[in-house]
Structures are given as structure tokens and as C-alpha cells.
Amino acid sequence: MPSTPSTLGDFTVLPISIPPLPSFPKPTTHYLYLRHNNPKIPTPNDSRSLFLTNCPVDSTDLHLRSLFTSLVGPGRFESATFEDERKDTAHKLSPLDAAVPVNAVHLLRAHGSTKKRKREEEEDVERSKEDEAARLPSTWARPLRKSGSTAVVLLADEKSVEQVLKACAKLPKTKKYPEWGAGVANKTPALGSVWLKQHNRLCYPDPATLQQAVDAFSAVFARREKEAAEIAKRLRNEPDEDGFVTVTRGGRNAPASRSEAEEARKKMIERAEKKRQEMEGLYRFQLREKQKEEQEELLKRFEDDRKKLEAMRMKRGKFVPEA
């Protein structure tokens, strides 16, 4: 491809040659786009990381490592974080976040935060440990990336970043594109049938492991439930700075379960409805009104039919018997 541009917007183009396979025997070129990483919320590592978009779907840490090694030599590449992994924390709830009793969500959100700040570091470590314990085992030996997705690559230092970009700019002239997956073949888990078989095997984890994950989760959940109950108890007695006392569930009587309350409400509505029905048709004016309503309904339906017919007429051929 003679006219491949070296930049695209503020991205640098990195063409990669894809070796042909027997099932698709055509050498192809994939294009990776990179630029300095400047996320909206800056982190200390931004200056030495690169933002990649259009990653191949079978990208792994190793793939990218080999790619960058071929560009700027070994020792520069530190790690890669893929789009779905990053979103993990935001979107895919970690088991710990999920392990919150429903009735405690609000309470913890409003009142639990103050306590946390004091020993944040400490808690973070413990948290990730718990998280790890409660997580269910993954069913994939090697997850795929979505087509066209992004990744952030952490390099050794700022200089390496510049070097990588420079090396990319040179590529179109030399036409010697780095090869995808060179030298990683045996180090990454295989795809294809082995990959699917592994998946099936991983779908059935060891019962003991499963039991452990469930137990870890339950422990956290029970603790949270207790915490929430305590906060609620505290709040019941403490007025806040404006002098208001928060109304919480569980007063003198044992707290009613919410579903029971809902049931009771349903029953009440039913009773009211029944009563209303009994009263219907008691007065003459009710009957008359009902009659009038029925007539109007009939008229409306007639109009509807006519309209529908009009619409059908628009679609030709509806009224012609099939030949």
C-alpha cells in the first residue's frame, strides 16, 4: 500500500502485517492507531503510556510486548490494559460491590463514606483481597477483545513513548511492517478447538473452589448487612446537623419484610376494588353513564375500523383475490 498515511488525526498509524493462515491464505495488514495517553482524569503514569485504538481481537499482553520489542527493542514495555479490563471496575460490578443488601445501599452511600476515608489505603488492600476471594473463576483461558477496541500501554519512560511514535512514523517508508504475533505462539493459550475445549472445562470448576467463593461472598454480605443495621440503629437516635432524625426501618417492632408490606398493599387495593364494584350500578345515573360510555366506545371502534380500512386501502392488493 503505497499511500498509507503515517498519521490519522492526532493518531500515529502503526501498520502490522498479518501472516496468512491456511484457512484464509491472504497476507493482510492491520492498522493500529496510537497516541499519547491523556485521559480526562489524569493519572501519574500518563506521560509514559500510549493510548491504542483498533486493537486486534486476539490481542494479549504478550502480543503487544513482542510488537513493541520489535519497534524499539526489549525492556521498554511494561504492561497493557485493555478496554474491557478497564471497564471492569466501572461496569462489571465486582462481587464486593454487589454484596450489598438492598436496604443498605442508601444508608451506606450517605453515611458510610466518612468512616472509610480515614484508612483508605489499608482498606483498599483488604478490599482487593476480599474481592479476589469472592470472585468466581473465569471460564475463559484467553478472553477476546471487541473489534476496534482500545488499550493503554505502559512503557518504561517518556523517552520510549517518543521512540515508539518515531519508529511508527518511519514504517511506511521502509515498508517493513512488524509481524503480528511473532514469537508468542507457544507462550499464549491457544485459540481454536483447544480454546473452546478449555472453555468447556473451565465452565465446570472444582466444587470446593466454588464453595469458597460463595462463602467469601456471604461473609462480606453478612458483615455489610450487620453494618447497615448498626448505622440504621444509630441514625434512629441521632439527629443530623439540621436537627432532623432520619426515619429508618425497624422501629420498636421487628422490621417487616418489604415483600410482606407489598402484599398487604395489594390486598388493600383489592379490597377497595371489590367495594367499588359492589357500589357500581346502584344509582340510575351510573347506569346511564355506563350506557353512554359503551355507545361512545362502539362509535370509536367503528371509526377505528374505518381508519384501519383506509390504511389497508393504501397498501394495494389487499383486496384483490390471489390468482
Binding site: 498479518i18 484464509f24 491472504k26 492491520h30 486476539d58 477476546l144 473489534s147 481454536g192
Partner: peptide, 26 residues
């Protein structure tokens, strides 16, 4: 507004890689 075009061949090559021995031909 730089326009780009779908890289169909690259995607098919990816499918060939994913499928590995499962894919006979595309």
C-alpha cells in the same frame, strides 16, 4: 473528520486466527 474504511480482510484474518483448526476455509 478523517474518513476510514472497514478493514474487512484484516477482520477475516482475525476470524481465521480465532477459529484456528476449527475453521477450514473462509
Amino acid at each position: 473528520k478523517v474518513e476510514v474504511e472497514m478493514n474487512k480482510e484484516a477482520m477475516l484474518a482475525e476470524i481465521a486466527r480465532l477459529g484456528g483448526d476449527l475453521v477450514e476455509k473462509i
